[in-house]
């Protein structure tokens, strides 16, 4: 386990970068974990952020990032799979490494993913969100990967390599990197079928028998990310201090609710960072 840091920021969008910049400004040690591309990158034109107008989203993100980098904050690319509140600290599973932090700021954006029928009730009974966590339990069994994230191909190859009889479902054409012996179906899973345990998955009009289904989305629902985290209509519940119901855990930006705008995200990032810093100072004294 690496050395404990003060604040872990999850998410490299405007809210996350704002939180990181303000946490460093308060003398805290910070690591910023980012899953990848931010939706702002794709905005052709941004006109609703005071002082910056007629600017592309990509250019704006670049400025935000440069600001963070000037303070020594380099976003670390990878997936945060779980965050475990331990009472006096947090354990963060960052791509298979455990990082320890005194406070955490979630700036994870909005998960566009909608749960499909059967998914929630069969979670842990054949439905899994983590190939590297549960893959070994499906050795010599059938499993289906529904790939909605860029790393799904890699995860499917991993499952195959440990002896899972796996097939990949994803939109578009068969990915080149997919090992040649793994079956590929172009499409989307619309339903997980099973009574007590998963027995099949529906893809279009076809039913595929399977013992397990790995649903790999870019965004993980907040409640699946942190055990005990309270949400409302998919958004994380926060106080005016951007504190969640869990002490030391803050949230900022789109993940806390509408309006889904840059200025709100940046303001919330600031508030979350200030209060996280206060929280740490208080618990140290």
């Amino acid at each position: 386990m690496s050395e404990r840091i003060d604040i872990a920021v999850i998410g490299g969008g405007p809210a996350g970068l704002s939180a990181a910049v303000n946490a460093v400004a308060r003398g805290k040690s910070v690591r910023l974990f980012s899953a990848g591309e931010n939706p702002l990158e794709k905005a052709e034109n941004v006109d609703n952020y005071l002082g910056f107008y007629k600017i592309s989203g990509a250019e704006m993100m670049q400025k935000f990032r440069l600001h963070a980098e000037s303070l020594g904050i380099t976003p670390e690319k990878g997936r945060v799979v779980n965050i475990m509140p331990m009472g006096d600290r947090f354990l963060i599973n960052f791509g298979g490494n455990i990082v320890e932090a005194s406070a955490v700021i979630l700036a994870i954006g909005v998960a566009k993913a909608k749960e499909i029928p059967g998914e929630g009730v069969l979670l842990g009974r054949g439905v899994s969100y983590c190939a590297t966590c549960d893959g070994m339990l499906y050795r010599n069994k059938n499993a289906l990967v529904w790939g909605l994230a860029p790393d799904a191909v890699e995860e499917t190859n991993f499952l195959s390599s440990i002896g899972v009889k796996v097939m990949l479902v994803a939109k578009g054409e068969r990915p080149e990197e997919l090992n040649s012996q793994i079956p590929f179906i172009s499409g989307a899973v619309s339903e997980v079928v099973g009574e007590d345990f998963v027995t099949a998955a529906r893809v279009g009009d076809d039913i595929h028998r399977t013992d397990g289904i790995f649903i790999l989305r870019s965004a993980i629902a907040p409640a699946a990310l942190v055990p005990g985290l309270e949400t409302e209509k998919g958004y994380i519940k926060v106080s005016r201090d951007m504190e969640t119901g869990i002490a030391g855990l803050y949230a900022a930006g789109d993940c806390t609710g509408t309006p889904l705008q840059i200025s709100k995200a940046i303001g919330e990032g600031l508030i979350a960072a200030q209060n996280a810093a206060k929280f740490i100072d208080k618990s140290k004294s």
């Binding site: 799979v81 779980n82 475990m84 331990m86 354990l91 599973n93 298979g96 455990i98 983590c130 590297t132 966590c133 549960d134 070994m136």
Partner: peptide, 14 residues
Amino acid sequence: WAEWCMPCRMLGPV
């Protein structure tokens, strides 16, 4: 639990 399961190792201290 299992050795290779990262979330299991996070639950260990609990």
